[in-house]
Deep mutational scan, measured.
Amino acid sequence: DLSALRVEEVQNVINAMQKILECPICLELIKEPVSTKCDHIFCKFCMLKLLNQKKGPSQCPLCKNDITKRSLQESTRFSQLVEELLKIICAFQLDTGLEYANSYNFAKKENNSPEHLKDEVSIIQSMGYRNRAKRLLQSEPENPSLQETSLSVQLSNLGTVRTLRTKQRIQPQRTSVYIELGSDSSEDTVNKATYCSVGDQELLQITPQGTRDEISLDSAKKAACEFSETDVTNTEHHQPSNNDLNTTEKRAAERHPEKYQGSSVSNLHVEPCGTNTHASSLQHENSSLLLTKDRMNVEKAEF
């Protein structure tokens, strides 16, 4: 173990290094160091905050020279020094078990990766560091076993998940096959086929009936047209017969005018059967003409 005197000496050296690497504005270890034209180094955030307070150039807090945003430059070497100082402080805390008085939040800088452990060898070769390295080497064999167990647990979990997924996939297939086998029997399929065939026959029977009705309507229309044509021909046949009657009536009127007047009046009210309204109107006109002729003949006879 380190003596108290040596611990104090190391602590004083760390404090001196820390004062050199402090920012003059925030009085902390410089984060993202930036250098000016006057070779003074500050935190990048502190300098941008200072420049944004005034429009135009501002003055350096140490030498009062003008500073602009374009004049600022990043210093990589200074950032490396800060990183190495942080590593020294971490090693000091691990070796002594004491917390550094002016320690900052170094938890963000710590890294437990194997590459980081290899890099620590180049920091300080001390008894405390050696003991700590031995402890780490002793704890390393235990870690692979834990990793193997965790991997086995994960693989077993994956296997159970896969088996569950396969079961879920197989179950719908089985149910679907069961439904297909038990849903419709052979008799049901035959009945469905016969039902479809009967429906098709009914459709075939319905369509000819409609065509037959249309044919019957067409035949009825044709018969009505033929009947009207026969009526017209009958009226045409009746007209010459009426003319013959008129000639006979004229002759009778010349011989017996008194008797014919009474008979002509009675004939006005008689309509021949089986004739249309057109034929009756023609008869009325003929009878009126005959009456006028008879009157003329009677007057001539009187004179």
Rank of each mutant, 00 (worst) to 15 (best):
V265G: 13
E299G: 13
I41P: 03
V161L: 09
Q93W: 12
I67T: 12
I89E: 02
F106S: 13
D1A: 08
K44V: 12
K64T: 13
S288R: 11
E236H: 00
T36M: 06
K44P: 07
N276C: 13
V270Q: 02
Q205K: 03
C60N: 14
I206P: 11
V298F: 00
V34M: 12
S35F: 09
K44T: 08
K192P: 08
C90M: 10
L137G: 10
P208F: 01
P57F: 03
K69L: 00
I20Q: 09
E28D: 10
Q93G: 12
E148Y: 06
E249T: 03
E229V: 01
T36D: 12
E142S: 09
L146I: 15
E285R: 00
P61L: 06
Q138N: 09
N105Y: 04
V198H: 01
E148W: 11
L117S: 09
G159H: 10
I179F: 08
T207Q: 10
Q125S: 04
P257T: 09
K118L: 13
S3W: 13
T230M: 08
S122K: 09
C63N: 15
R165L: 13
L29S: 07
P33T: 12
K134D: 05
L204C: 04
L27D: 08
V7E: 06
K64L: 02
L158G: 13
Q283P: 14
S266Q: 13
N234V: 05
P61H: 04
M296Y: 02
D66N: 06
S58Q: 01
T248E: 09
G274P: 15
L164G: 11
P24K: 09
L48P: 10
D39T: 07
A16C: 04
R251H: 09
N276G: 03
L86G: 14
P144W: 08
A91Y: 11
L217C: 10
N52R: 13
Q93P: 10
G210M: 15
F45N: 12
T160D: 05
S79Q: 15
F78I: 08
D39L: 02
E32F: 10
S150N: 06
D218Q: 14
S58C: 14
N105G: 09
N102W: 14
L62S: 11
S186G: 02
E226G: 00
V13D: 03
T160G: 04
N65M: 06
L5G: 09
T207F: 13
G199L: 01
E271S: 04
T230N: 05
V270F: 00
L50E: 06
E140G: 09
K222I: 02
N102V: 00
P257I: 05
E120G: 11
L48Q: 06
L85E: 14
T275Y: 01
Q261M: 13
N276P: 02
N157Q: 10
C38E: 12
E8D: 13
L86T: 04
A4L: 11
S288N: 06
K64F: 01
S156A: 13
Q147R: 06
K134Y: 02
D218A: 03
G199D: 01
L137E: 04
L204P: 13
E9A: 11
L51H: 12
A279K: 04
V153F: 09
G210N: 05
I20E: 01
E142K: 11
S266D: 11
S156Y: 07
L62I: 07
I206C: 02
C63Q: 15
L289P: 02
E28T: 11
L29K: 08
K259P: 05
Q11D: 12
S145G: 05
Q154T: 00
T207M: 14
Y260K: 15
T211E: 03
I30W: 04
E271V: 01
T194P: 03
Q93R: 10
K250G: 12
E142P: 03
N243H: 04
S266V: 07
N15S: 09
F92A: 11
R6E: 08
F92M: 02
V10I: 07
P141S: 05
L117T: 15
E99P: 06
K55A: 07
L136H: 06
D66V: 03
H278M: 04
Q80A: 08
Q201C: 00
L27M: 11
L217N: 06
Q73I: 12
H269G: 13
S281H: 04
A224R: 12
L151V: 06
D218M: 03
L51E: 12
K192D: 07
K87E: 08
Q80P: 04
T68E: 14
E271C: 06
L50A: 05
R295V: 00
K108W: 14
A223L: 04
V265P: 09
D294F: 03
N267S: 01
G210T: 01
V7D: 07
R70A: 12
Q205L: 00
L151E: 14
E8Y: 02
C225Q: 06
N191P: 14
N143E: 05
K192G: 15
R251D: 10
L136I: 10
L94K: 13
T36A: 00
F303L: 11
R212T: 05
I67W: 06
S58E: 14
S152D: 05
C26S: 15
S150E: 07
R255D: 04
L204H: 14
Q168L: 12
S156W: 01
K44E: 06
E99R: 02
R165T: 14
Q93C: 14
D213A: 02
S126P: 09
S281Q: 10
L81N: 13
E271I: 14
N267L: 01
V161I: 08
Q261L: 01
Q147S: 10
D213N: 09
D244E: 11
L50H: 09
P272S: 08
S126L: 08
H40M: 10
K49I: 00
C225M: 02
K259V: 08
E22D: 06
C90L: 11
R174D: 11
C46H: 02
I25W: 01
P144V: 06
K69D: 02
V82C: 08
T277H: 08
D213F: 03
L137Q: 06
T189P: 02
Y260P: 06
Y260H: 08
V82K: 14
L5H: 05
D294R: 01
I20V: 06
T68L: 12
L29M: 11
E249N: 12
E258Q: 10
K55Y: 10
E99G: 09
H256K: 07
N286L: 00
I67D: 02
D213H: 12
E74G: 12
E28H: 11
L86H: 02
L155R: 12
E84D: 07
D200F: 00
Q11R: 05
D213S: 04
K54I: 11
S216K: 11
I25K: 05
A107T: 06
R165M: 08
V34C: 06
E142L: 07
T36L: 08
C60K: 15
E214L: 13
T233L: 03
S216G: 10
H284M: 03
E254F: 14
N65E: 15
L290G: 09
F303V: 10
I20C: 04
F92K: 14
N267E: 13
D244R: 01
M17S: 14
L217I: 05
V190Y: 00
C63T: 15
L5R: 05
I67C: 02
N52V: 14
K259H: 01
S122D: 11
S139W: 08
Q80D: 00
R135C: 13
E84A: 09
L81M: 00
Q239C: 04
L137F: 03
C273V: 15
Q147N: 11
T248M: 01
N276A: 15
L27S: 07
H256I: 14
Q125H: 11
Q138M: 04
D39R: 06
T163G: 09
F78N: 06
I14E: 15
G274C: 04
E84Q: 10
P114V: 15
Q147A: 09
Q73G: 05
T247D: 13
L137H: 11
D95N: 15
K37Q: 02
L48F: 12
S152H: 03
A252V: 06
